[in-house]
Write a protein that binds this DNA or RNA. Sequence first.
DNA 1: TCTTTCCATCGAAATTTTCGATGAAGTTCC
DNA 2: GGAACTTCATCGAAAATTTCGATGGAAAGA
Lengths: 292, 292
Amino acid sequence: MKIDLYSLNILATVVREGSFGQAATVLNTTQSAVSYQIRKLEERLGIPLFDRSLHRATLTSAGEIVLEEGRRLLESARQIEVLTERFADGWEPNLKVIVDGILPIEPILKALKVMAEENIPTRIQVKVEFLGGVQYRFVKEHADIMLVKDYQPDPSLNEHQLEEMESILVAAREHPLSSMKQASLDDLHHYVELTVHDSSEQYVPGGDRMMFGGERIFYMSDFNSKKQALLMGLGFGWMPSFLVEKEMKEKSLIEVAYRGGSRHRFRPSLIHRAGNSLGKGGRRFRELIIGK
Amino acid sequence: MKIDLYSLNILATVVREGSFGQAATVLNTTQSAVSYQIRKLEERLGIPLFDRSLHRATLTSAGEIVLEEGRRLLESARQIEVLTERFADGWEPNLKVIVDGILPIEPILKALKVMAEENIPTRIQVKVEFLGGVQYRFVKEHADIMLVKDYQPDPSLNEHQLEEMESILVAAREHPLSSMKQASLDDLHHYVELTVHDSSEQYVPGGDRMMFGGERIFYMSDFNSKKQALLMGLGFGWMPSFLVEKEMKEKSLIEVAYRGGSRHRFRPSLIHRAGNSLGKGGRRFRELIIGK
DNA sequence: TCTTTCCATCGAAATTTTCGATGAAGTTCC
DNA sequence: GGAACTTCATCGAAAATTTCGATGGAAAGA
């Protein structure tokens, strides 16, 4: 490595200040040290950077190029320093968040936007999962935070409940269940149930307590596809209320009059490991999500 | 400056080789020197880069970011080194060429293309000038090469003649001069003469030996504008033959039957300072222009 | 001409880095 | 379970690099 940032910085200072001596003053060193560093850089590169035949040393054209490129290099190096300063200051380099796809994504995007505006150095990774897949991934990938509807309580996890949400059991207007006054579990079993599938690799017994245990189940990849399938009359299923408000008002989706209850209120939670595991980035994200 | 390329390179080698010891072998040094450099880098940055609690040191997440950014930095530094190696090898950083606008630009563009393909590190600057302005700029801006129709001979300049060209005295078909069987100098003086103007700041007496000294002269900025003006019938003037071939064949421009001669053959030259003033870039350019 | 500024250079001093050895902790293999 | 091996930290001594402070020559300015 012929180039080093130290002498490049001296080169830049010499040119900025106009003379070796003035650069030495600015750099709190002596003129001979500056001279030594410049000479050494020239020797390593094998080309003169300054023309000494004049009274004041002036850059050669090669020197100009080296200076120009060197300044770029110094600027990049300073940016790395800024980054590491913030890491040293408690901003973690990475923050991994797993989100249950049943939750509205908008507040999360808003939080990310705020954090981007605040110039936060943390790289935030958000992954959307479903049902048991959320916690499964949280554990498997050592994520920092999960936003989840249901989870296996664990004393090593810190929980903060978010605002209450509601799921509604719906079907398309044309679907037979929509016209029933009263639907029994048996009635439900006659039709296809739509649900989303998670990506936990293991089988979790009783993983989704909202499912009815019928024989014909279609698994969709997310709630938007599930809504499309519901609208097509493919079957019935639970949907978060905020996703079907419009369709219910238009009566393209109808609440199923299930005896066991067609509404289900729940409070999603923001979970992270207890103790001081979150860095500044994680804490800021938490703060933005739980609303202070 | 907390960061230095030397320790960054060691960091990258440690990660690539998998251990401090192996990195030391590759870098031809000892394990303790590697350990020392990594520790010092960590101290300066104020954050640990490796997690030593495991058997083998593994990168922390901050370490990963520093490594990633550090690699980029090292890559840039190496590029500067490559550049300076080529400067040291005789490729000059800059090459300034002044070209007379009367010459066809195509061979020059071809030469530039070849040199770009050859990955030549020299930054080439081409400026187009006219008449006396070419040499004026060559001197004033310390250009390396000029391609010129006429110039003031000078023993310190090296000349190489290029292929002969021809200028033709033309006017538009509708122009009165076009229908004359024989035109005298007096006849010419009745009409507007079109010429291009150079940007030499001084008045050069008798600068353009091709002008007829009439009273009404229009100065255009280049030969394309001049051709436009000729086609519009604004006046008469000299044009390099390669620029008016098509128009003369179509008879939209007609050769003026001037008694003193309506054709003028000349050999443009490639000029540079005598001796060893040209670097490899300049010599390659010369070679490409004069055709070996 | 005298003074000042600019830069190179030199030996001595200071600082940084490497070396080589040692030791602790973890891993592998038998 | 224990011997052999690998990995990394650490230490004092040695080596290498860098800085210091002084000196001198060359050019510019007064």
